[in-house]
Each structure stands twice: as C-alpha cells, then as structure tokens.
Amino acid sequence: MRNKKRMCDMESGQKGRVVEIDVKGSILRRIRDLGLIENTIIKCVGKSPFGDPMAYTVRGAVIAIRREDGKKIIVETGGFCEK
C-alpha cells in the first residue's frame, strides 16, 4: 500500500521517499544542502521529549527537523521502501 503523508506525520521507525518539497528560496537551499531532495529515502528515528522536533536519517546522517518545516515536505510511505 502506497501512502502519501507529511514528513512530520511519520511514525518512529517508518521509512519514506520524498516526493515533494513545498518550500522556496534560501530555506529550500538549506534543505537540499542537507541532502534532502526529491526521491531521497528517509527514515524517522524518533521524537524529542516534547514531540517536536523529530529526528530523521537522511543519507546516513541523523538530522532533527521541526514540525512546521517538516509539514512542507511530503513523503510516500509503504510500497517499495518498506522492508
């Protein structure tokens, strides 16, 4: 089952493929510099004590991203990337 959701709604341990980044300008630049571009496979690895920010594995590094930034990034879960 393929399923689109916002990056910030991923469950801990869930994997997903980035399909859309709805951000512009310098922030998009920053996000891409972290290796977060379309088709990147990411994995949610946990939440901080308050539930925000959340941590994701992106290209081998663990990166914490806040909910309001994560909600602009759409991922596709299920299907090929679920093991």
């Binding site: 922030i27 920053r30 972290l34 941590a55 590094a61 663990v62 990166i63 914490a64 806040r66 930034d69």
Partner: peptide
C-alpha cells in the same frame, strides 16, 4: 518568528 531549523545529531 523562529526561522528554519535543522540540527545534526552526530
């Protein structure tokens, strides 16, 4: 308002 934030956890 708070700006974009990304922090690497080594």
């Amino acid at each position: 308002v708070p700006s974009f934030f990304a922090l690497e956890l080594p």
